[in-house]
């Protein structure tokens, strides 16, 4: 009884996870500028990954594989925002100071004045620690 409920639940989670990841990849291809693509990519990294790993955890049963999957989940949970923030910050310092074109140009002056504070890598380092 419990087994079949778990199997159905894990199938649903795996299917939903696959759906969210494919939508993220579609967004990665379709969105017009770098920062929008980053939102699509963060979708595959958050809910897509959680659902897939969670679905696998439900089928794993008690034991070491469950622990390792949980470790992978925790690791993805903590590193994906750090990598995303590092990517955005690095893009800000290099050539993509603004999301080029599109609706965001009206904020252009605001952003340039904001990003002119020089490179500062401390934020990336401290984001690592949480």
């Amino acid at each position: 009884m419990i087994d079949s409920v778990l199997a159905i639940l894990s199938a649903v989670m795996l299917g939903l996870g696959g759906f969210f990841m494919v939508s993220g990849a579609i967004g990665l291809l379709r969105f017009p500028d770098f920062y929008s693509r980053m939102h699509a990519a963060s979708m595959t990294d958050t809910l897509g990954s959680y659902l897939v790993v969670g679905g696998l955890m439900l089928t794993a049963g008690w034991g070491l594989p469950l622990f390792k999957l949980a470790l992978i989940l925790v690791f993805i949970f903590f590193t994906s925002p750090t990598a995303g923030h590092a990517l955005a910050k690095s893009a800000q310092h290099c050539d993509l100071r603004l999301p080029g074109g599109g609706a965001s140009t009206k904020k252009a002056d605001n952003e340039i004045s904001g990003s002119a504070q020089g490179p500062d890598s401390r934020d990336v380092v401290s984001a690592d620690r949480v």
Binding site: F34, R37, M38, A41, L87, C94, D95
Partner: peptide, 8 residues
């Protein structure tokens, strides 16, 4: 851009 590639 190079950052799109890194993201991918």
């Amino acid at each position: 851009t190079i950052h799109d590639r890194i993201l991918a």
